[in-house]
């Protein structure tokens, strides 16, 4: 498998580390979020047979975390982008 890094181009699988489901938003806010939101975020991941949005890091290259869209039934990659922010933090 080769992964198209948005910075480095098509690079071999061995240069990348997997980071899992990229559809989740990390719970934010200053109050104690309820536990089930955190359980959902940490433990319940998207696991489709088909297109999967997932994090990868180009550890053996530019070190960017990227999000790729990959079909889990045949490993074909249809999209790759730099990882967008998963929360609307803003400067605090």
């Amino acid at each position: 498998m080769q992964i198209p890094c948005p910075w480095c181009g098509l690079r071999p699988l061995d240069e990348f580390a997997y980071g899992g489901d990229a559809t989740k938003k990390r719970p934010t806010g200053k109050r104690q979020a309820d536990t089930s939101a955190w359980v959902d975020y940490v433990y319940i991941h998207d696991n489709p047979a088909g297109r999967h949005r997932e994090y990868w890091q180009h550890v053996g290259g530019c070190r960017s975390w990227i999000v790729i869209t990959r079909d889990t039934t045949n490993h074909a990659i249809s999209k790759a982008e730099l990882a967008p922010p998963d929360s609307r933090g803003g400067r605090r």
Binding site: M1, L13, D14, A17, Y18, G20, D21, N47, A49, H52, E54, R70, T72, T73, N74, H75
Partner: peptide, 13 residues
């Protein structure tokens, strides 16, 4: 192999 898959095959690394 380290990534989600239903393909019943892996890669060369």
């Amino acid at each position: 192999d380290g990534y989600n898959s239903y393909a019943q095959r892996g890669n060369m690394s």
